[in-house]
Design a protein around this nucleic acid. Structure first.
Lengths: 113, 113
DNA sequence: CTGTATCCTACGGGATACTG
DNA sequence: CAGTATCCCGTAGGATACAG
């Protein structure tokens, strides 16, 4: 952690929906727009589009358009995007532990009260 | 990455200054308020305080107040906070690679133009 | 030295309607 | 199906002043 580039990493994955999008693309290597939309409750089309565009700009995902009617667009992780998997995985594990940890803290203070 | 707790992890470390604060506390295990302020260019007192409070609420850092005049307050990582180090470290490495990667992409497109 | 207290603004994100 | 185009709002974060 010489000079702190955590900023850069965070920039790439922060955004209310980005990690959820990435999550689905880790599970499923090609995924369509509406498939994503259905898989992520609460997301709007606008948000889905804009977050996808940002991920694309960071070269984390690819957008493949099929010249068809009706349109078909598939999103998938780039190789570079796949390099994020270990980090996301660690964060997920840490997140679970963090929840437990914080809960146990609350339990302690409750017991005192 | 069973069910995605990346959210939780992100919540804990997202915030414009949090990872910078953490970074300094990794390098230096006890650090004072003004020391942090001086080490983090651009941060305001308000922001430093509020980010410190949030980190404290997540039990990532401890606040130790010395009963003195003038006041002295030392911040340090909790054990739980230290469990974040590997993640931050990975993110930092990835961040550096990401910068290079994106730069090389720009170079390619420049060459085409 | 280590903070609060205000006030203010930019922008991430939501709701809704429209389109090739 | 896979998107734009608008309009709108809450809140994270900045500037500044004051305080124990």
């Amino acid at each position: 952690m010489s000079e702190c580039k955590v900023d850069t990493a965070l920039e790439a994955i922060v955004g209310k929906w980005k990690h959820k999008i990435l999550f689905h693309m880790i599970k499923q290597d090609k995924i369509r727009f509406n498939e994503l939309k259905r898989s992520i409750p609460g997301i709007t089309q606008k948000m889905l589009t804009s977050q996808l565009r940002e991920l694309e700009q960071h070269d984390l995902i690819t957008r493949k358009v099929y010249a068809q009617v009706p349109p078909k667009v598939e999103y998938s992780l780039t190789e570079h995007g796949k390099s994020l998997i270990p980090i996301l995985s660690m964060m997920s594990v840490w997140g679970e532990e963090h929840v437990k940890h914080v809960e146990s803290l609350y339990r302690e203070t409750d017991e005192k009260a």
